[in-house]
Simulated scan of single mutants.
Amino acid sequence: MKQFLIFTVKTLVLLFLLLVVLDFLYTTVYLQSSNRGKIDYVYNSVERDYDVVILGSSRANNHFVAPMFAEKGLKTFNYGMSGGHLFEASLLLKLMVERKYTIKNVILETDLNLSNEKRAEGIAAKFLPYIHNSEITKNHFSTEKDFNELYYIPFYRYVAFETRIGFREMFFNAIHKKTNHLLNMGYSPLGNGKGNMKNNISNLKPLRNKYYEEIRQLCKDNNINLISVMTPMCSNTKGLNYFDKVQQLYPEIHNYEKAVEGDQYFSSCGHLNDTGARLFTSVIIKDFFNK
């Protein structure tokens, strides 16, 4: 029995040491990468200078044509992330500020994402390799229910989110394999193929959102002009009064839900195609940057 206990203890110690080594190796790779996605592109950077930074979900990523801003002489990058929530947008902006980015304007897509304060698991996971190296990232995750496991158990985060930051993604980072996330100044155009052209947002309710208010305060503290906007949805959507509720809650958020109308401009009910995005972007440039 004694020998069995000694064997068990030795096995557990060796397993723990292996997890520590693997954690160190994976993290080291991620700390050297800056061309796989928008998060590592920011984290492993210093002192960029922008006239316009775009933040939000896919309804930012697919709706704001960054090259059109550049044509107007505005240095711009679209940091919108498909599937992302305001949790991730707030953390990304915090990291930009920490890296001493000079930002004149932030355009924040603030509409459906106001209805929750949850993290988007697939996007939030991309920040986790840095949780031990970044006090800002650590603090941002500190109120999450699984923070202790993510922070204190070696290699746990890489196992728990294997499909996002596990071996395959680590390997691609190690060989510096690029993705298309950084093309077109971060803008991701959608085609004309029709997805779901019906939607129902009747059950959504905008919140006094902690992460939106963090972004608002960050911009105020760093002399960044915050332009918060609601972006278009197809007319065949139930519950469009949601957008009125958003403006009642936060009057400073500009309602552009009807800025582009017609199914021919949508790839799905909640996402403009490239033609629609260009129409929408031209409206935003005209309203905010032609003065």
Score class of each variant (00 low, 15 high):
Tyr151Trp: 07
Ala120Phe: 09
Asn116Gln: 14
Asp146Gly: 08
Phe167Thr: 15
Glu149Tyr: 12
Thr179Ser: 14
Pro129Thr: 05
Val97His: 03
Ile153Ser: 04
Ser142Glu: 14
Lys138Met: 07
Lys177Ile: 00
Ala160Met: 12
Ala125His: 09
His132Tyr: 09
Pro189Met: 03
Tyr151Lys: 08
Thr143Val: 00
Glu169Ser: 08
Ala124His: 10
Ile153Met: 12
Ile103Arg: 00
Met185Phe: 13
Thr143Pro: 04
Ser188Gly: 01
Gly166Asn: 08
Thr143Trp: 03
His140Ser: 06
Ala120Asn: 14
Asn116Met: 11
Asn105Asp: 02
Lys178Gly: 00
Ala120Arg: 07
Leu183Glu: 14
Gly191Ala: 04
Ser188Thr: 13
Glu149Ala: 14
Glu117Ile: 13
Thr179Lys: 02
Glu109Asn: 05
Phe147Gln: 05
Glu135Trp: 00
Tyr101Val: 03
Lys178Pro: 02
His140Tyr: 06
Arg164Gly: 09
Asn180Ser: 14
Glu121Trp: 09
Leu190Val: 12
Ala160Asp: 10
Arg119Gly: 02
Phe171Met: 08
Arg99Lys: 15
Leu182Tyr: 06
Arg168Gln: 12
Thr179Asp: 09
Lys178Val: 06
Ser142Lys: 14
Phe141Arg: 03
Asn139Pro: 01
Phe161Lys: 15
Asn113Met: 02
Lys178Arg: 10
Leu190Cys: 06
His176Gly: 00
Ala125Asn: 06
Asn180Phe: 05
Ile123Met: 11
Leu190Thr: 12
Asn192Cys: 02
Lys126Val: 02
Ala174Thr: 12
Asn180Pro: 02
Glu121Val: 11
Lys177Trp: 06
Phe167Ile: 15
Leu183Gly: 00
Thr110Asn: 03
Thr143Phe: 10
Asp146Cys: 03
Tyr152Gln: 13
Leu150Tyr: 07
His140Pro: 01
Phe171Pro: 00
Pro189Arg: 05
Asn148Asp: 15
Lys126Gly: 01
Phe171Glu: 03
Leu190Arg: 13
Tyr101Phe: 13
Met185Gly: 04
Gly191Gln: 04
Ala125Tyr: 04
Glu121Arg: 14
Ile165Pro: 08
Tyr130Ser: 09
Leu108His: 07
Leu182Gly: 09
Lys104Phe: 00
Ser142Ile: 05
His176Phe: 03
Ile131Thr: 04
Thr137Glu: 10
Lys177Ala: 06
Glu117Phe: 01
Thr102Asn: 13
Tyr130Val: 08
Leu182Trp: 07
Glu144Tyr: 12
Glu117Met: 11
Phe141Gln: 10
Phe161Met: 07
Glu169Gly: 04
Ser115Met: 11
Arg119Asp: 06
Lys126Phe: 10
Ala160Pro: 02
Val159Glu: 05
Leu182Met: 07
Tyr156Thr: 11
Asn113Asp: 13
Ser115Glu: 15
Thr143Leu: 12
Ile175Lys: 00
Lys138Glu: 13
Ala124Met: 06
His176Val: 01
Ile175Leu: 07
Phe141Trp: 05
Thr179Trp: 01
Leu128Arg: 07
Thr143His: 15
Val106Asp: 03
Arg157Asn: 12
Ile107Ala: 00
Ala174Arg: 01
His132Cys: 02
Leu183Lys: 13
Phe155Gly: 09
Lys100Arg: 13
Asn139Arg: 10
Asn139Asp: 14
Arg157Lys: 15
Lys177Thr: 01
Asn105Met: 07
Phe147Gly: 07
Met170Tyr: 08
Arg164Thr: 12
Asn148Ser: 15
Gly191Trp: 11
Tyr156Lys: 05
Met170Thr: 14
